[in-house]
Nucleic acid binder design. Sequence first.
DNA 1: CTTGACATAGAACGTCTGTTCGTGTATAAT
DNA 2: ATTATACACGAACAGACGTTCTATGTCAAG
Lengths: 217, 217
Amino acid sequence: MDEDLSKRQQRILEFVSDYIEENGYPPSIREIGAAAGISSTSVVSYNLRRLEERGYLSRDREVSRGLKLTSTARAQVASEAIVRLPLLGRIVAGEPIPVPASDFPLMGDETIELTRDILGDPQGLYALQVEGNSMIDALVHDGDIVIMRHQRRVENGEMAAVWLKDREEMTLKRFYQEEGGRVRLQPANPTVKPIYVDDPRQVEVQGKVVMVIRQLQ
Amino acid sequence: MDEDLSKRQQRILEFVSDYIEENGYPPSIREIGAAAGISSTSVVSYNLRRLEERGYLSRDREVSRGLKLTSTARAQVASEAIVRLPLLGRIVAGEPIPVPASDFPLMGDETIELTRDILGDPQGLYALQVEGNSMIDALVHDGDIVIMRHQRRVENGEMAAVWLKDREEMTLKRFYQEEGGRVRLQPANPTVKPIYVDDPRQVEVQGKVVMVIRQLQ
DNA sequence: CTTGACATAGAACGTCTGTTCGTGTATAAT
DNA sequence: ATTATACACGAACAGACGTTCTATGTCAAG
């Protein structure tokens, strides 16, 4: 459909779709209103009529729960649920990760599709693929996909992609800024000792790790 | 389910299944009653409760159209829709067809599954597979499946499997008993001449052809 | 004959349900 | 200033809806 839906109408479509999947029958006008934050049954009815005009659903007049999603609606709900992230490149041991330019496009040469369900807000996210076994102490395997959020600072305990300047080494570790200025980089693997860096200027946080995906087939 | 359903309950299940497929939402209690010939909403409700107890559907209390078929119900509806016929053997030119014994089992060595939708009442039906090109004038191809009803007499114009004794030949043709006793066997292919048999004792009707199925893959 | 399970039926009821009506605000175009 | 459109809201309404109650019948078992 060339016209965009209002946020309310998009919300209504998603709610109806989820409700039918969960309950086996459609919601009532009042249930839709409660879910979409609409207090008047006539406003729900108005929005349903607009969705029907645009081909997202069909209604049977004066029938309780008499609505049915069309394939257009299912496609719309599905497309809204999918997020495409740029796969910017590789993360290897001996060089800094590629970081996105300030205006990097969402449609890069290579992308990976995930769902909003597992990602939440996709703003500022991008993907990197691990090359080599250097991330093993982060429990990250060669070939894994790492979803990053581009940020230069992380909270204590969050996993970050950290560039160690003196070693010229990239690592994925939980970042801790200790009292007195020392940085502790804690591996995810609890049997591996942490890295301590006395001079925080030797440490560069390049992004926060949001997710790791391992495809096994 | 080890308990059989009553005919009313089976009818209700099929109606609900068809209704959901056609409308996208379940029927109301009153619609179920109308379809099943039940004039009282409490009887419909009683039967739905029995179906729910047996695991065929689930209901949400005091919700309009608040019922959902389980996979058990779908399997039940599907199994009721499927008919399994014995594939008794071959139909070839030079010998009579195998005819079922009076108590032949429904679960023979080999069977073919069809739907009640295209067969109607499956009582007394069985299948034969055509071998050779001798039935071409009946527009029946080598390898086709012929569904037969075992009967020794057919109405004029019905297609029958006919054994010609003097020729020792099996044929599928439209059977006509003409005045004066002569038998006319009319091919389905209108460009082929019929066979005339003066002595009806030379002709033996072995079954009526109900359906021809050609699988092309 | 009695009892219990199963099945049927109609009436009555409270709640759910979707539609209609009247009204209001915001925005864009004329 | 006026008009059209989109979107919002509450109230009222008639009818749909599922449940409850009461009554009845059939059948099998004891």
